[in-house]
Simulated scan of single mutants.
Amino acid sequence: MTLVKIEKKNWAEGLTAAADAYRLFGPVKEKDYHQFKELEKGEMPDFEMVNTRLSPKALLFPQSEEMLEYSLDESQDDHHIMKEIARDDTPRAVVGIRPCDAKSTLLVKLNFDTPDVKDPYWLNAYRAATFIGMACDTPLSTCFCTTAGCGPYHEEGLDMLVMEQGDAYLAKILSDKGKAFADAAGWQAASDDAAAFEAGRQAAEDRIVSTVKTDNLAETDLLELHGAPFWEDIAFSCINCGTCTFSCPTCWCFDIQDEVHGKSGVRMKNWDSCMFPIFTAHTTGHNPRDTKTQRVRQRFMHKLKYFVDKYEAGIMCVGCGRCVRQCPVNIDIRRVCEQMNSFKPADACAVEG
């Protein structure tokens, strides 16, 4: 394990040096919230935040992303031919990403990098990215990462993990990408304080007050859980706004649409949500999930059952708590998980499928 100690007074100097080799992204306060954005020259990430309102998944998976362009002008030789739009996949460093958000990239990767399908847009952005994590020493009351396969000092998905240590930062190099970034910043290994990370991790985990239980999800019969009697109650207050899915770092649903202006067209990828009524609408007019209850059930079954069964990689959630904090009608994934995990098949009754 390689440790680097960086005096806070030298932090900006190091990032400025790294900006010669990387596009830098980090959390910046905008009005009352922090959001991840590309940093302007000389701009520094703001670590006074606990977590951002939206996850940084948009850095790899933009909310709207133009993929192809074409012309309908038949006077041109290349009319009606799709051409890839140029992308900037030069090296980028995401500085200050929380461990839960870094772990989420590995869950999302299971969808975009499969043996049969490899999404070049997501994968090229992922390969270009270096993730510099900031340990989470002040978790919120809605954070339940430690029981969702993650934690405030979790290292999966990170290339470097940074913690505060008085007037300095202590950084743990976790990959070759992390070492390359440290070299670009001029940060040299100069610390043997490995115990500090363990002490920081333990203290941060002790501050986590929220938990979920997931031990029974894999063994529970899928169809009986699908027909459980509690879905109507869970869905009662939902307004299908999509806030939960758009704020979630592990939601990956998207739609592909063409937009034409005059004789110029683009094909673009846009975030979509299983909570929207037309998400599953067929061209025939049939909609297999045309009720609110069916859509709410789909969201939680996907995260807490289908994903568990398919990938055997835990739940499709890292416990960041964003959906808990932002749901306008107070639907809480922790309570839903408890109902699903404690469900007994004998409790099932006949409900609409």
Results as ranks from 00 to 15, higher is better:
residue 148 A to R: 02
residue 11 W to Q: 06
residue 1 M to Y: 06
residue 255 D to V: 09
residue 72 L to P: 04
residue 13 E to C: 08
residue 74 E to Y: 04
residue 186 G to Q: 03
residue 22 Y to G: 02
residue 286 H to D: 14
residue 168 A to G: 00
residue 334 R to T: 03
residue 348 A to V: 10
residue 197 F to D: 07
residue 137 D to L: 11
residue 15 L to P: 00
residue 314 G to R: 09
residue 79 H to P: 00
residue 98 R to F: 00
residue 129 A to S: 13
residue 230 F to I: 14
residue 27 P to C: 00
residue 151 G to N: 08
residue 25 F to L: 11
residue 293 T to Q: 05
residue 281 A to W: 01
residue 42 G to H: 11
residue 198 E to L: 13
residue 78 D to E: 12
residue 123 L to R: 15
residue 307 F to M: 07
residue 289 R to F: 04
residue 145 C to E: 08
residue 276 F to R: 03
residue 128 A to V: 01
residue 325 R to A: 15
residue 254 F to Q: 06
residue 239 I to T: 13
residue 22 Y to T: 03
residue 92 R to Y: 01
residue 213 K to S: 13
residue 211 T to K: 15
residue 253 C to T: 02
residue 275 M to C: 04
residue 122 W to S: 02
residue 178 G to P: 10
residue 84 E to I: 11
residue 143 C to K: 02
residue 323 C to I: 09
residue 210 S to E: 09
residue 302 H to S: 02
residue 284 T to D: 11
residue 281 A to F: 06
residue 333 I to P: 05
residue 73 D to P: 03
residue 340 M to V: 09
residue 28 V to W: 03
residue 304 L to R: 01
residue 165 Q to P: 01
residue 196 A to H: 03
residue 204 A to V: 10
residue 142 T to L: 05
residue 167 D to V: 08
residue 50 V to N: 12
residue 310 K to N: 11
residue 123 L to Y: 03
residue 19 A to M: 03
residue 87 R to Y: 08
residue 254 F to M: 06
residue 242 G to S: 06
residue 229 P to S: 14
residue 99 P to Q: 12
residue 51 N to D: 10
residue 242 G to Q: 05
residue 33 Y to Q: 15
residue 140 L to R: 12
residue 163 M to R: 12
residue 94 V to Q: 05
residue 325 R to W: 03
residue 81 I to Y: 14
residue 129 A to Q: 10
residue 118 K to C: 06
residue 325 R to L: 12
residue 242 G to L: 07
